[in-house]
Design a protein around this nucleic acid. Structure first.
Lengths: 201, 201, 201, 201
DNA sequence: TATGAATGAGCTTTCATTCAT
DNA sequence: CATGAATGAAAGCTCATTCAT
């Protein structure tokens, strides 16, 4: 991408980013048309390609941008003392919720990114997907997994919970308008249930 | 579709079906090119359209075919007496495994079908998706959910398990060659673990 | 074409000819599909091409066949003594009417042939069109044009009448089912009117 | 169609229109290839579809455009006082002649349009064909048909003249290069002759 | 910097024609 | 003689990308 993008007025940057996130989130990489993106952003076709070179370049940039932003939100808010796996997860969910204020489509974009089936898009985002996963693992080092019942294989539990939360959000995205608060309530319900099943006592 | 397709030698039918399943599974509806399909099947472009009318017609046929096939496998193998939710699920997994012998890409195709984001493809498969879901629900009526611990909300548990199994397979598909046996072992491990957490005692 | 066509049973020959005439008449050369023709004739695709080599070859054969047939009908029936231009024309119309008994689509085919806009079809039928025109001119040599009023340029009158009759039939063909008797009545009305305007007294 | 077409330089608009008129006139709807049109117009494939959406959309636009243009020419030039049917017709012919200066293929296009046998093309032009016919009828209300001899059925005479003029032009178009002036002379000759036969005295 | 008209490779689909049986 | 499954060139159309202004 062309670094001069950051010299644009913040308002225009955000307009372009939000428009792109929206179109990619709603349609997925392949069905997102650059025509729709520039219409939504109120800019010209040429400008998009001037700054991002290609549709894939734009997608790649957005991936970077979102992962960086989410990392920041999560790093800021987390409570370093907490050791309960499920409580930490709930904190992360709360942090994500706050990221949606500025960029309403950011979460949807990240969820869609992980389901992307376009080979190009997958290649372009591989690094960031790994990146994000690493962050979660880093955070989760603090979790005290010894609280888990003996029957609960901790790796499997963690993967299951991860998949569960992503699917919940994906489902809401697909069945119409995604409502952050409703999702948050659902997510907490699941986490509480799993917690009561997995933690001792 | 043109019913004369079924008059072709079974070998050719299977070659066409397998090739289509493969290309659609690997690329998704939109990115699956009819050129690739005919190349893989070793037939001409015209023939494909002679039998299936359109790319969407082919996709629609495959959906029908797979759902019907899987339903048959599941109906045949299930043990009517069993009431344990997790044991029933394991029986279903075993049934699916056997379906893969003839059509290696059938499961992948069905998994991809449920994630399809092309509006056309979604419309064409809506009925079959509902259909398949109904079959699972029918089978699951026999499950005795009173075995679940009080903390386990049965609807949430069932949804979670469903998502879990699909994601497991999807993950294997996406990270290279899908190996039925490996998937099966994994699936059983998860089911056993969840069972031990959810069932009383 | 393959002359062995004439060794086929007359019934089959006629079935193939009638089917072809029908499909070409109704759709015109370009929109007539060989699939429709073989379906209508109850024969296989291969047979059609075995005898006629190509769609154009079939079309060309039909042109020949119809022109020859119509020439025969006209030659047989005409009254050699008649000299009134318009009476001769009415005799010809009556002769054409009788040709429709065996080949219902023959007239329509010939009318459509003259309007054909496919370059290939036009080239293939040029000779026969000229041929047919020559026959009419030959017959019309007997007409006593001195009966015409001075203001009536005989060449222009003849061309006008010719065009008029063809258009009348074309119109009936295009607006649904062509009814020979209705057409015949109309044609005679026009001929009578023009006669009364053009002939002296 | 995309209204931005009219923002293009007039020269380019005319180039695209003329090229399309030419290719459609010469080949008819079905045989007119979009490849030929863009080659003739010196533009890319994409541009054609950008402005007109589809081959049928282009055809439909041209129909509109020509009918509107011809209506304008006819409305401008006609002499409101004239009541002689044949003189009015000659005025119309003169008006048409002037339309050909800017768009040489306009008349040919309209003539071919009335003979079109493609179902799609026919549906798309039905309204405009009716439209054009209505204009002629409106103009012809001023004609004083009481001048006609008793033997001349006015409806039949008018239809005959109409068919005659169209066929004259069609014939010239089909037998090579259409020459407006030559056609005009021919048309006037026919009109004068018919006039002298049909009008009293 | 910003525009949007213009491009063309690549896709799905059609249909006259061929050829193994 | 007869079949019809199979072919593939050519058509209409899409959309990410370019470039003159």
């Amino acid at each position: 991408m062309n670094e001069k993008f950051f010299d644009l007025k913040t308002e225009k940057q955000d307009r372009m980013i939000n428009a792109s996130l929206k179109i990619f989130s709603v349609n997925g990489y392949q069905y997102a048309s650059t025509d729709d993106i520039v219409k939504e952003a109120g800019i010209s076709k040429g400008l998009l390609f001037h700054y991002f070179g290609s549709k894939l370049g734009l997608y790649s940039f957005l991936t970077d941008y979102c992962v960086r932003y989410i990392k920041m939100e999560i790093t800021n808010i987390k409570n370093d003392k907490e050791t309960d796996y499920f409580v930490i997860l709930k904190d992360i969910e709360t942090a994500k919720l706050s990221a949606l204020k500025k960029f309403p489509y950011m979460q949807q974009f990240l969820i869609m990114m992980e389901r992307e089936d376009s080979p190009d898009a997958m290649k372009a985002t591989a690094e960031n997907r790994t990146n994000l996963k690493a962050l979660y693992q880093e955070i989760m080092k603090k979790a005290d997994l010894s609280k888990f019942r003996a029957e609960a294989n901790s790796l499997r539990i963690m993967k299951m919970v991860d998949i569960m939360l992503k699917s919940l959000m994906y489902e809401e995205i697909k069945t119409g308008a995604f409502k952050p608060d409703h999702y948050h309530t659902e997510a907490v319900s699941y986490l509480d249930m799993i917690s009561s099943l997995v933690n001792k006592n």
